[in-house]
């Protein structure tokens, strides 16, 4: 075949690729923050004494962890309009990422809460802490420290998973890579560059998360 590698296509379109990477960063950061919230709320629900809180939380986790993210994206974007709920590609992709990662976060938060020995709560109560103070000063800091490494893994998975939302037309790094390939026919160079960009994003996120972990250890 007369194909000659030609990386000039990358240099010429670098601003576009970087813009794609930036969009991926934005979407992932937003989804991470909302998914933390989902994880905390559902994780607390899952450890609740009340069955009517525990039960829905447990089914939420199982449903979203045991089906492919891609199917969830399709179901939200193509399926929901049929029952009258039409979401934009952005909203669909974002919702799917949040719900999928939120389910994994829920399990992490639950495990973190359950890992705190009962004696910790008793020690706090015996010193006269109220329930709220016990949660604020004893449970949350410990649960957070226990959960952080596992949460970090979920965040990195989310960053990689965000590539899937390109299939419903949400614009981010993978979408721009596909687009660029379509006009330049330089699949090897473009996908190679996109792969390198993802690697750079994943490394940066791991690095930032490691710093946050260390900071939080010192802070609380």
């Amino acid at each position: 075949m007369g194909y000659k590698l030609n990386f000039s296509v990358i240099w010429k379109n670098l601003p576009l690729l970087l813009k794609g990477a930036w969009l991926t960063v934005e979407v992932s950061t937003g989804a991470i923050l909302v998914a933390i919230l989902v994880g905390i709320v559902m994780g607390v629900a899952k450890t609740s004494r009340h069955q009517f809180l525990r039960f829905p939380a447990a089914w939420y986790v199982e449903a979203f962890r045991n089906t492919p993210l891609l199917i969830q994206i399709f179901l939200i974007y193509f399926g929901l309009p049929q029952i009258g709920l039409k979401l934009s590609p952005f909203m669909s992709g974002f919702a799917a990422l949040v719900l999928y990662t939120g389910a994994y976060n829920t399990e992490v938060v639950r495990a973190g809460l359950e890992a705190i020995p009962k004696g910790q709560i008793e020690a706090a109560r015996s010193l006269g802490f109220t329930e709220i103070q016990t949660i604020r000063y004893v449970i949350v800091p410990q649960a957070f420290r226990i959960s952080l490494p596992a949460l970090s893994n979920n965040f990195i998975a989310l960053l990689k998973n965000s590539s899937l939302v390109s299939v419903i037309g949400m614009v981010e790094l993978t979408f721009i890579g596909n687009d660029l390939t379509a006009w330049t026919f330089r699949a090897f160079e473009v996908y190679g560059a996109v792969t390198v960009l993802y690697l750079a994003l994943v490394f940066s996120l791991s690095w930032i998360l490691a710093i946050i972990e260390r900071r939080i250890r010192l802070l609380i």
Binding site: A123, R125, S126
Partner: peptide
């Protein structure tokens, strides 16, 4: 409770 101190077998210090 604040008037009664209790010391547990397993210490229960905040780690």
């Amino acid at each position: 409770r604040a008037e009664i101190g209790i010391v547990f077998q397993s210490f229960n210090l905040f780690p």
